[in-house]
Structures are given as C-alpha cells and as structure tokens.
Measured scan of single mutants.
Amino acid sequence: KNAAQIVDEALNQGITLFVADNRLQYETSRDNIPEELLNEWKYYRQDLIDFLQQLD
C-alpha cells in the first residue's frame, strides 16, 4: 500500500487525514475509527506525513 491509497481509503470512509505541527491528524464525523485503519496510519505515519505535506 502507499500513502495515496491510505488517504483515499480514509476519505471513502468519511475521514480526512492532514498534518498539523508535523503530526498526522484526522477529522471525521464518525463515532469511531476502525482499529485496522488506526494501525495502518501508525505503521505508515511518516509516509503519510510526507505525502500530505507535498500536497500543501
């Protein structure tokens, strides 16, 4: 998997990933985040941060 796929997957589930103060953050109206997504975000944290910062 790559960062773009993970960001896309999150968006499809109503979750927006973004970077604030060099930390990976998310916004969602969901009550909870599936644990497998959280684990994936932790595992790919630096890739996601790098990818999202390139988009800014």
Rank of each mutant, 00 (worst) to 15 (best):
L55E: 09
F51R: 02
N39S: 10
A20D: 11
Q53D: 06
T16R: 15
I33R: 00
L24F: 04
V7T: 03
E36D: 10
R45N: 14
F18N: 04
S29K: 12
Y44Q: 04
K42G: 09
E27S: 13
L24K: 00
D31Q: 12
Q13K: 10
E27W: 14
I15R: 00
K1S: 04
D56T: 12
A4C: 11
R23Y: 11
L11A: 11
L52I: 06
E35G: 07
L38P: 02
L11T: 08
T28P: 12
A4R: 14
S29P: 07
L55S: 10
D8V: 13
Q53F: 07
L24Q: 00
A20N: 09
D31V: 11
E40K: 07
V7H: 04
L55F: 11
Y43R: 12
Q5E: 07
R30T: 07
G14S: 04
E36T: 10
E9C: 06
F18G: 05
N32H: 14
D8P: 01
L48A: 00
L11Y: 11
K42C: 15
F51L: 05
Q5W: 06
D47K: 10
D8N: 14
I33E: 01
L55M: 11
L55A: 12
L37W: 08
I6N: 01
N39M: 12
Y43I: 12
K1I: 04
D56H: 13
K42A: 15
F18R: 07
Q25R: 11
T16E: 08
A4Y: 07
Q46R: 08
F51N: 01
E9T: 05
Y44E: 01
A10Y: 03
E35N: 08
N2W: 07
L52N: 00
V7A: 03
V19C: 06
N22Q: 08
T16Y: 15
D8C: 15
R23K: 13
D56F: 07
G14F: 05
E35R: 08
F51W: 10
Q54A: 12
E27L: 13
A3V: 10
D31L: 10
E35Y: 08
D21Y: 06
E35F: 08
A4H: 12
A4E: 07
N39F: 11
E36H: 11
D8Y: 15
K42R: 13
A4V: 05
D31E: 12
A20Q: 14
S29F: 10
L55V: 11
I15Q: 00
T16W: 12
N2S: 15
Q13A: 13
R45K: 12
A4G: 07
A3K: 01
D47W: 06
D50W: 09
T28Y: 05
D56N: 13
A10V: 02
V7I: 11
I33M: 04
A10E: 01
E36P: 06
E35T: 10
D8F: 14
S29I: 10
I6Q: 01
A10L: 03
R30S: 08
E40C: 06
I15E: 01
Q46W: 07
